[in-house]
Design a protein around this nucleic acid. Structure first.
Length: 192
DNA sequence: CTCTGGATTGAC
DNA sequence: TCAATCCAGAGG
């Protein structure tokens, strides 16, 4: 029996949640099958951070970021890819954690089919890649991550000495903030 | 209504 | 190194 992370886990400081998500398992159950992977890389987006979608108030796109924690925030980037985030902090606070990379664990044949790639490292090595491998789409925007088909289960504990903090990938505003976290010895992160 | 840039990926 | 590709958000 897998232990699902409770809503209280997400209703805390976003930077802390981003770090603690490392090692846990993101799982998605669809009609095609179950796919899952260990979270090895994540980024925090908080209030007052210019790179955060919610930094300039609520809009139709970012409204779920202001809702209760433990929900999925999915949006389109560059007109062609999706990024998946988990809403954090108490309701009313527009913050979230972007999941950037997974170590494939379950449903690997299905991931290969969805991605059209064979190599394990080309399945979930980037935010838009993992979204494709797990079969996540804009339809999942707003989904409750506690008790639904899309959820995070307890995985292994990652000690501080195995977590690296760096600046975030691809952001222009707020580029100096050290809000990207990844597992030091993982070979499945999006880049060094 | 028009314009601009983006939390990426994959091909060259 | 750069094109693909298109929508959200901002400004008129």
């Amino acid at each position: 029996m897998k232990h699902i992370l409770p809503r209280e886990f997400y209703a805390r400081d976003t930077v802390l949640v981003a770090k603690e998500l490392l090692g846990h398992v993101l799982l998605h159950e669809t009609p095609e099958g179950v796919t899952a992977g260990r979270i090895v890389e994540a980024e925090a987006y908080i209030q007052g951070d210019p790179a955060c979608h919610a930094s300039r108030g609520m809009t139709p796109r970012n409204r779920v970021m202001f809702g209760p924690p433990g929900h999925a925030y999915v949006y389109i980037i560059y007109g062609m890819h999706f990024c998946f985030n988990i809403v954090t902090a108490p309701e009313g606070v527009g913050e979230a954690v972007l999941i950037r990379a997974l170590e494939p664990l379950e449903g690997i044949p299905l991931m290969r089919e969805r991605r059209g790639k064979e190599r394990l490292k080309e399945l979930c090595r980037g935010p838009a890649m993992l979204v494709q491998s797990l079969g996540i789409s804009k339809e999942n925007n707003g989904d409750d991550m506690v008790g639904g088909k899309l959820t995070v289960c307890q995985g292994e504990f990652i000690g501080r000495d195995r977590i690296i903090a760096t600046t975030r990938v691809g952001v222009t505003r707020g580029a100096e903030l050290p809000f990207r976290f990844y597992i030091k010895d993982s070979s499945y992160i999006s880049r060094k």
